[in-house]
């Protein structure tokens, strides 16, 4: 496990030059909060943004041909993959914490009451969206490398976008959502379980894909 944490730390050093891009996320979060957007909207924005940005690490890895660096260091393939997942989710978690702080601060400044239920639901939905997008993307990046994978990796974004706008077009779907919302806590638990399962499946897929990858 320690090697995975060291690998995640290495990913941070690799990714360092891209951190400035998170300024755009901070700006968007402040804007949406001031506009009174719900926490679900904020959460999905964070999920989207971090999923898009954090995969730049695969681009840097490919551009600098870091496979040889990884091969020279004393850890194995699973540590590389676990470290990448840890890095990606820590990225997301920190962005989410920042978003919550900004959202709560803006609510406080606007003298609005904080809707805790909406906040927690937003966090869960955001986590699910992020897990689905990253869970699909990461194995594809490990298999194909950044350049070949980037077109395919738009698919999870489109999928999540489609799920978000479906309720507006399908009354039946809206009905299901409304029904689920009456048991919000159960819904949140189900979301967390689904996120965990998606993560597990994604990790195992990544191990298989990277092992068989011809790029190594």
């Amino acid at each position: 496990m320690f090697n995975s944490l060291k690998m995640a730390r290495l990913d941070y050093f690799v990714f360092k030059s891209q951190i400035i891009s998170y300024a755009a996320l901070i700006l968007m979060t402040v804007m949406f909060s001031l506009m009174g957007s719900s926490f679900v909207t904020l959460g999905i924005t964070v999920a989207w943004f971090v999923a898009l940005l954090s995969t730049n690490i695969f681009s840097i890895q490919e551009k600098n041909e870091l496979e040889e660096l990884y091969a020279s260091l004393p850890f194995n393939l699973k540590s590389i993959i676990r470290g990448r997942y840890i890095f990606t989710f820590v990225n997301y978690a920190l962005a989410m914490i920042l978003t919550i702080i900004i959202g709560v601060s803006v609510s406080f400044m606007q003298k609005k009451n904080l809707d805790y239920a909406d906040t927690f639901l937003g966090i869960c939905i955001s986590l699910l969206a992020f897990t689905i997008i990253s869970g699909i993307q990461i194995p594809i990046y490990f298999k194909l490398g950044y350049t070949k994978a980037k077109a395919w990796c738009m698919i999870p974004f489109i999928l999540v976008m489609a799920i978000c706008i479906l309720p507006f077009f399908l009354d039946a779907f809206l009905g299901i959502i409304t029904g689920l919302m009456e048991h919000q806590m159960k819904l949140e638990i189900i979301i967390l379980i689904i996120s965990f399962i998606v993560l597990l499946v994604s990790y195992n897929l990544s191990v298989k894909c990277y092992q068989k990858s011809s790029r190594r």
């Binding site: 690799v14 840097i60 600098n64 040889e68 660096l69 020279s72 260091l73 004393p74 850890f75």
Partner: peptide, 15 residues
């Protein structure tokens, strides 16, 4: 094993 292996490549493998 890799604690005691050093690798030098034909191309720079650092960022």
């Amino acid at each position: 094993i890799k604690q005691h292996i050093g690798v030098v490549s034909d191309k720079n493998f650092f960022v």
